[in-house]
Design a protein around this nucleic acid. Sequence first.
DNA 1: GTTACTGCAAAGTCTTTGCATGCGG
DNA 2: CCGCATGCAAAGACTTTGCAGTAAC
Lengths: 127, 127
Amino acid sequence: MTKERRTRQRALVLEVVQSSDDHPTAAQIFQRVRRRYPGIAYATIYNALRWLVNRGEITEYTFGDAAARYDRNPHRHHHALCTHCGQLFDVEVRLPKQILQQASRRTGMKITAHHIQFLGLCSRCAT
Amino acid sequence: MTKERRTRQRALVLEVVQSSDDHPTAAQIFQRVRRRYPGIAYATIYNALRWLVNRGEITEYTFGDAAARYDRNPHRHHHALCTHCGQLFDVEVRLPKQILQQASRRTGMKITAHHIQFLGLCSRCAT
DNA sequence: GTTACTGCAAAGTCTTTGCATGCGG
DNA sequence: CCGCATGCAAAGACTTTGCAGTAAC
């Protein structure tokens, strides 16, 4: 059994992610946590994020750009990325069951999850 | 205007990607090209890949893991990733128009593209 | 002949690791 | 007290950049 420790650092990382609605990267989380806990190490942020992801408390997503982004909302939902300003929005849509069945049939895989990335221009960049 | 040059290196990179059905990473492409052109530099692979992506001859995708993968098939299609062995399959399914309209309405964005990632276990890993 | 591309190495970005110290249980 | 997590720095994986020389046209 793994003994689990709720440390000040992990609590702070979780708190920061939960209070962010902009899907921050590890670097942004580091900066925000450091404002309240200046001595914290970068590695601790990564450790805490991985721990939280494994426990299902937050979710990690990667998009075309380099850094992974973290999401406070652990249930499955989808995302729309503005290709101009990089802003990321949550999208609540449901993929019809038949599409999942099609995907499963055509690949021979047992599909357990899916994620849709929408790309386009946000209302501010579209003008 | 930018004058475009078809060089031996770029031709080889394109040829390697087009003859690969396994969505290779830059490192794999590098190895495969180097078998036929031993002196080629890593940077040249990246330059060639970016050039080919910009011209629309190949497509770049990023998944959870570190390295980008390149796809010989430039038309829009979707992917299924085996979370056990990492193998990536093409998936041909069509997202219903109403889902795109919903996404657009709910985010206020002008959606120009989308990509579905299916996750699960391939037939070999599922047993 | 120009000028864009290559090859090389070095730097840059994001993430992980090794190890001594320290805190949580 | 024991062991996991932290903090620090260094390494690791992937990608980009600067620049001199070379090849495409």
